[in-house]
Amino acid sequence: MKLLQYLGSRFVAYIAVLFIGVTITFFLPRLMPSDPIEGYIAQMQNQAGQTITPEAMDELRVQLRRLYGLEGSLVEQYINYINKVVLQFDFGPSLYSYPRPVAEFIWTALPWTLGLLGVSIVISWIIGNFIGLLAGFFHNSRFATTLEVVGVVIYPIPYYILALLLILQFAYIWQWFPLSTTIRPGPLTWEKVNAIIYNSFLPAMTLIIAGFGWNILSMKALAFATKEEPYVVFARLKGVKPRRIMTRYVFRNATLPQITALALSIGTIFNGALLTEILFSYPGLGLLMRTAIGSGDFNLMYGTIIVSIVSVATAAFFIDLIYPLIDPRIRLR
């Protein structure tokens, strides 16, 4: 019962976030003071001079309005928009590479971003929390203090500086990894997998290192506090072996707030991933977003924004679904 309640409330929150996100992306361009269609037409007129007749101009205007989904009243537009975007996942054609649909670009880019992000979040969470756990649990040992210093040093470095430092060292000075990503399209062969790993290594590294500084510090604090909990003290008094106290008693409990924190920070991590892709010309959503902005491709821009919102909300929702698996107080009454 309690579990259903929990899942229900999470699901409602998830849907609400999606709805609000999609609605905002609908209104945002419509609140902009400049009309992109008039801008486009003015541009055309400048280039073509008098050769376009007013009739052809009006025709063009109608065409463009349909392309951008700007026909009819605001309510009609909104219903139309929800219908297309949410139900058919159709963001219209790309305006820059007309008439290829935006969805096509997004479907090619999304796996790259999700793969990069998924792998680096999992690795940085595991390594960071493991180091943090050791540092907090053996807080008296010199070894643990050294581990903590890693977190203290890494944590405050702004993400882009860290990324640039890594690029400078590994790609420019040592040339271990490529400066920018080049992966030829084609079927998934061994060579291609190798190429993907080789090209993704450095971007993933920057994300992992940027993420685990925080994981180390917060896990260290949590483990240190959990160690004083009566149930941990009692485990020691029972004569449970220290390693088991660390895993079954301290980690199992300290990990709960860490998972909540991960769900809350997934948006920030996603931002980081977008930036990484731009820095490494990594063919994911972030790079696509930059292309869209650079070329004034509105449909592509809003498409990538909506997919970002959906991705972040879905990831957070999945983490919420995992939570009851490790906390029986939510699972069972």
């Binding site: 941990v232 485990a235 004569g239 199992r252």
Partner: peptide, 24 residues
Amino acid sequence: SYIPQSSMSSLNPVVKIRKQFVDF
């Protein structure tokens, strides 16, 4: 054996009692 002063919260909340009975 020892029953500590804060014995109300001396059992690990996320592990079944069965396991806590024999894990030492």
